[in-house]
C-alpha cells in the first residue's frame, strides 16, 4: 500500500473511539506542544480545524476563477461567432443579441466552476482514480478517530504517555 513517490515516514498513532474524546486529546496535545502530523476520521469532525491550525480552504477562489473563465468563454465565444466569424440574422434580432446569450453563459459558468473546482480538489489532496495513498488503519474509515505523530518530530515516550492519559483505545507504530 505504498506509492513509490512516498518517502518512508515513521508514524506513531493512537486510535480513539469517539470524536469528542479525540477533540479533547487534540486540545491536550496543543497544551503539551506536541506536533500533530495529521488527524484521520471517518467523517468531518467540526471544531477540529482551528485546533489543528488549519486555515480555511481557499477552494472557493478556484471556483470563482474557473467560473469566470466559463463566463468569458461562453460570452466572448458567442459574441465572436455571431458578430465576426459567421454573422446570421435570426428572427430579425441583432447579431449581438445579448439576452439570448445569457442562458448558455450561465450554464458554462457553472460547468467550468464545477469541473475546475473538483479537479483542483482532487489534485491538491493528491487523490485520483487508482491512486493509492498510504493509510494507517482500516478502521479509520469505519469508527475510529486517529491522531498521528511523525516520530522524527516528537519524543515517542511523551506521545505514548499522552495517548494513555487522553483515553486512546489503541496505540500503534507504522512506517508508511
Amino acid at each position: 500500500m505504498r506509492t513509490a513517490s512516498h518517502k518512508n515516514l515513521d508514524v506513531v498513532y493512537g486510535l480513539y473511539d469517539d470524536e469528542e474524546i479525540m477533540l479533547d486529546a487534540v486540545r491536550q496535545a496543543n497544551k503539551e506542544h506536541l506536533d500533530i502530523m495529521d488527524v484521520y476520521s471517518p467523517f468531518p469532525v467540526h471544531g477540529l480545524d482551528p485546533l489543528l491550525g488549519l486555515e480555511e480552504s481557499r477552494l472557493h477562489v478556484a471556483g470563482f476563477v474557473f467560473g469566470a473563465m466559463g463566463t468569458l468563454t461562453a460570452f466572448l465565444g458567442m459574441t465572436w461567432i455571431f458578430t465576426k466569424d459567421w454573422p446570421i440574422i435570426f428572427g430579425g434580432k441583432p447579431y449581438w443579441s445579448v439576452p439570448a446569450f445569457i442562458p448558455i453563459t450561465f450554464e458554462l459558468t457553472v460547468l467550468f466552476a464545477a469541473i475546475g473546482m473538483v479537479v483542483t480538489f482532487y489534485t491538491i489532496c493528491g487523490l485520483g482514480p487508482g491512486v493509492t495513498n498510504p493509510y494507517l488503519d482500516d478502521r479509520i474509515t469505519d469508527d475510529k478517530f486517529c491522531i498521528a505523530f511523525d516520530k522524527s518530530n516528537v519524543d515517542v515516550s511523551a506521545v505514548e504517555s499522552f495517548f494513555a492519559s487522553t483515553g486512546a483505545s489503541e496505540v500503534n507504530q507504522k512506517t508508511i
Binding site: 495529521d38 488527524v39 484521520y40 476520521s41 471517518p42 467523517f43 468531518p44 469532525v45 477540529l48 480545524d49 489543528l52 488549519l54 480555511e56 480552504s57 477552494l59 472557493h60 471556483g63 467560473g67 450561465f106 450554464e107 457553472v110 466552476a113 464545477a114 473546482m117 473538483v118 480538489f121 482532487y122 491538491i124 489532496c125 493528491g126 487523490l127 485520483g128 482514480p129 487508482g130 491512486v131 493509492t132 495513498n133 498510504p134 493509510y135 479509520i140 474509515t141
Partner: peptide
C-alpha cells in the same frame, strides 16, 4: 481515489460540497 480521511481533506471536501451546492442550486 486513495481517500485517507485526513483532516485537511475533510475540510476541503466540506468546502467543495458547500460550493457545489451553492452553484447547483441555481443550476
Amino acid at each position: 481515489f486513495g481517500w485517507t480521511g485526513s483532516a485537511k481533506h475533510w475540510q476541503r471536501w466540506e468546502s467543495l460540497s458547500l460550493i457545489l451546492a451553492g452553484i447547483a442550486t441555481p443550476l
